[in-house]
Design a protein around this nucleic acid. Structure first.
Length: 817
DNA sequence: TTTGGTGTGGTCTGGA
DNA sequence: TCCAGACCACACC
């Protein structure tokens, strides 16, 4: 390290303004001090491609024409000839270097119609990402910086002369603070009544303007003072990271609105500048200069939601699932009432505090994962916490493209995306039809990262398709897709496949190194987060090939991957059968096999792995004591719906109503009890009793409303529904009663008594005052329970009266009335 | 703005 | 009134 250099940890990288090429890099020193590094040495640029047959003279003319071009009073700094690869093939380009980031758009738009220019490239790469990519700067890692510095405003500024990356995995101490607000309706508007603040250094506080007997409550005069005080406290505690749960679209949005009403500026960053909202697609994100605002909701929604079983992504549900703790219960009306009547305010204050406390706890679990995502995808914390799967892999590929001297393909235009979307779907994974009923001793095998390992093994990349070098052998191409005419190069690693290879190999290394680590150590936790981040990226690569918005779109690659996937799983199934085993079920990358012992399983495993090429590997997950495969409407056993139990009595459930949010609690609970009776207790009699009891309870009207609620998402604008389903009706009712239902909202509703269709009787759960027993018996509890019981040969009659009556349940209910 | 295809099942809708 | 097919949501991998 240069003795004059300062070692810094990168928190955020951003462009200072559209008019200047200055990069602002917000950092922390090892001693926990904030530092702003300003780098003025970088310039924005983009490429143009001229027509192939352009002569030398014309090239020169174009170059000088571009050099002299004045747009909006500015000229390019440089126009130089460049050569880069495009999908592996050389292309001749001109690189236009400008001074101001804003000129990228201005110049590229201006020359759009020029006939000498065939194409433009890399003009849509955001300037700060361009900077990070070209300078190999990775957020959440360390750098050594030299340059003149000055101090003031609570942080020092370094005007960078040199910036060098440092190989160091450790993290500095970072301070983090959670913020959460409570609102109350006042006329047309909402008003901020309370804010809670909690950090990871022992600080907690609620600010409000009504008194309550709570020690961490600070009472101020009114809303204006509350907002002012909030800003002071944030600046005083000076956190590096501010975490919220839905702060982008709620807390900061409201804070900002109310500040405006009160004639205040929200100054909570490290400079004197106001809170900003950065446009991201359709929505805005709250951005705080000098700190990083992480809105955990985005990360949960984009990245981890499908690993969760919560019926909605509320802070309550998500924290219950991830950290095992939820919120105190308080309804919106109750909160309003407490405030307006100044009664039970202690409860309200504590309720508000809980939100921030949960957010901090959640952040302690999730931030380490997001940090690693930053490092692997090379994106800022602000961005990495908000990116989707496809965006993460895309920015990683953008970085890799620069390193490989590849041109970054342009994003598809809207029309192109529409064409891609309309294309007929290609064939996906293979599902081996299950055999109905209970099976004892099932070994589960699956491929380790099936699609990434196929991508690597067969070098599946857009530019390795139909290569010149491997296609014309006498016997035909050796690396040919089974059942298709596609083939891929064997000699030269592809760009995308090479990137996936790095991810997978790194992950395997880390996983191996974890074997020797203490599971409670920080090292283990960090490594675990890292391997998880690598997995996220590697798994995103297949879907990205088939995604309409992809820069490296290739249906053929996606098709090839699934074709090989089908080939390998079928090969394994055949092998197992050949060795005398019965295969009970398989889906895409997995298979269930009846076995006698673990030893037998391992023999099969070895036998298979012996013949698998490259990175392909089958893994043995273990043996389940028994597995239940239920029938489908068709009469055959249903795919993707089954339950397993292992020797510890642990149950695994896939696809059944129990794991679906659009079924009522009573139906799911009953189904689960039935399943346990059968799988764990081996007592179908208990199961029948359970169902009868549930039915009786419903008939007597004794079921609590909470257990009757059905959750269904509104996935489109309400007007666009062609079919008016129960959740749509419930949503409409909600709106007519003054509540807001946005696209993406999860509607909670109950089917009530009365006449008309099921939909017409759907009431938002808040308004439902009764329920329709017949519906919950015939359409919820009984079908869910029968799904399990019928796999064992029971019928509805058995449920109703111990097999002695011929009345169907429908009649049974009818008679009772 | 939401990576891909495969599959199940509920409710509605409209024609017989 | 019945029923098939469309529509829709949500699971699996």
């Amino acid at each position: 390290m240069d003795e004059n250099a300062t070692r810094l940890f990168i928190l955020d990288v951003q462009q200072e303004s559209p008019d200047k090429p200055d990069m602002h890099i917000w950092c922390k020193t090892e001693k926990d001090e904030p530092v702003l590094v300003i780098d003025r040495s970088f310039r924005p640029y983009f490429y143009v491609e001229y027509a192939k047959d352009t002569g030398e003279k014309e090239v020169g003319e174009l170059q000088s024409k571009l050099s002299e071009l004045i747009v909006d009073g500015n000229k390019p700094e440089k126009v130089e000839l460049a050569e880069k690869k495009f999908y592996g093939k050389k292309k001749h380009l001109m690189r236009i270097t400008l001074t101001r980031p804003v000129d990228i758009t201005k110049f590229s738009d201006h020359i759009k119609e020029w006939k000498e220019i065939k194409a433009k490239y890399e003009h849509s790469v955001t300037f700060f990402r361009r900077y990070m990519t070209d300078r190999k700067m990775i957020p959440m890692t360390w750098i050594d910086v030299t340059g003149a510095s000055d101090t003031g405003n609570g942080f020092s500024t370094i005007y960078a002369e040199s910036i060098t990356s440092v190989h160091e995995d450790a993290y500095p101490k970072l301070s983090m603070m959670a913020i959460d607000i409570e609102l109350v309706e006042e006329g047309e508007l909402d008003k901020v009544i309370m804010v809670s603040i909690k950090d990871n250094r022992g600080f907690k506080k609620v600010i409000s303007y009504k008194k309550a007997d709570v020690d961490f409550l600070e009472v101020v005069g009114d809303e204006k003072e509350l907002l002012k005080r909030l800003c002071e406290v944030v600046r005083g505690r000076n956190p590096d990271i501010i975490v919220t749960y839905n702060g982008d679209r709620f807390d900061f949005e409201k804070i900002s609105q109310r500040a405006k009403v009160n004639g205040l500026h929200v100054v909570i960053g490290r400079t004197g500048n106001e809170l900003k909202f950065k446009k991201r697609g359709k929505f805005y994100s709250a951005w705080i200069e000098g700190r990083v605002h992480v809105d955990l909701y985005n990360f949960v929604d984009n990245i981890i939601s499908d690993t969760l079983s919560s019926e909605s992504l509320s802070l309550d549900n998500v924290s219950r699932e991830i950290i095992g703790r939820g919120k105190r219960k308080m309804e919106w009306e109750e909160l309003q009432k407490a405030w307006k009547e100044s009664k039970g305010l202690e409860r309200l204050v504590k309720y508000c505090m809980t939100d921030s406390e949960l957010t901090v706890s959640l952040a302690k679990v999730l931030l380490p994962q997001i940090f690693e995502l930053c490092r692997i995808a090379g994106q800022t914390l602000f961005d990495a916490s908000r990116l989707t799967y496809s965006q993460l892999i895309e920015w990683l590929l953008v970085r890799k493209a620069y390193e490989a001297d590849e041109i970054i393909p342009n994003r598809p235009k809207y029309e192109e995306m529409e064409i891609r979307r309309r294309a007929a779907p290609y064939t996906g994974g293979y599902v081996y039809p299950p055999k109905e009923g209970i099976h004892k001793k099932l070994a589960l095998f699956d491929f380790a990262s099936l699609y990434p390992s196929i991508t690597i093994t067969h070098n599946i990349s857009p530019e390795t398709l139909y290569c010149q070098c491997c296609g014309d052998e006498e016997k035909g191409p050796t690396n040919k897709v089974p059942g298709e005419d596609y083939y891929y190069c064997k000699a030269h690693p592809g760009f995308v496949s090479g990137t996936v290879k790095e991810l997978i190999e790194k992950r395997r290394e880390l996983k191996a190194s974890m074997q020797e680590m203490d599971e409670d150590s920080d090292e283990y936790k960090v490594t675990n987060s890292r391997q998880y981040a690598l997995k996220i990226l590697a798994n995103a690569s297949y879907g990205y090939y088939g995604y309409a918005g992809s820069r490296w779109y290739s249906r053929v690659c996606a098709q090839s991957i699934t074709a090989w996937g089908r080939y390998y799983i079928q090969k394994v199934i055949r092998k197992a059968e050949k060795m005398g085993h019965e295969v009970v079920y398989g889906d895409t990358d997995s298979l269930f096999v009846k076995v006698k012992s673990k030893k037998e399983s391992l023999e099969l495993l070895d036998e298979v792995n012996r013949t698998l090429p490259g990175a392909m590997e089958l893994e043995f997950q273990g043996i389940y004591t028994s597995g239940l495969f239920v029938p489908a409407k068709t009469g055959l056993a249903a795919k993707k719906r089954y339950a397993l139990i292992d020797s510890d009595g642990e149950i695994t459930i896939r696809g059944l109503e129990i794991v679906r949010r659009d079924w009522s609690g009573i139906a799911k609970d009953t189904q689960e009890k039935v399943l346990l009776s059968i799988l764990r207790d081996n007592s179908p009699e208990d199961a029948l009793v359970t169902v009868r009891r549930a039915v009786q309870k419903i008939e007597k009207g004794k079921v609590s409303m909470d257990d009757l609620v059905i959750h269904t998402q509104i996935t489109r604008p309400l007007k666009e529904y062609e079919q008016i389903s129960p959740h749509v009706v419930a949503a409409r009712k909600s709106i007519s009663r003054g509540r807001t239902v946005a696209q993406g909202s999860v509607i909670a509703y109950v089917i009530t008594k009365g006449s008309g269709s099921i939909s017409e009787r759907a009431e938002p759960s808040e308004d439902a005052e009764n329920y329709d027993p017949e519906y919950y018996i015939n359409n919820q509890v009984v079908p869910a329970a029968m799904r399990i019981l019928s796999a064992l040969g029971y019928t509805e009659d058995d449920v109703v009266s111990e097999g002695e009556t011929q009345y169907s349940l429908q009649n049974f209910v009818g008679k009772k009335k």
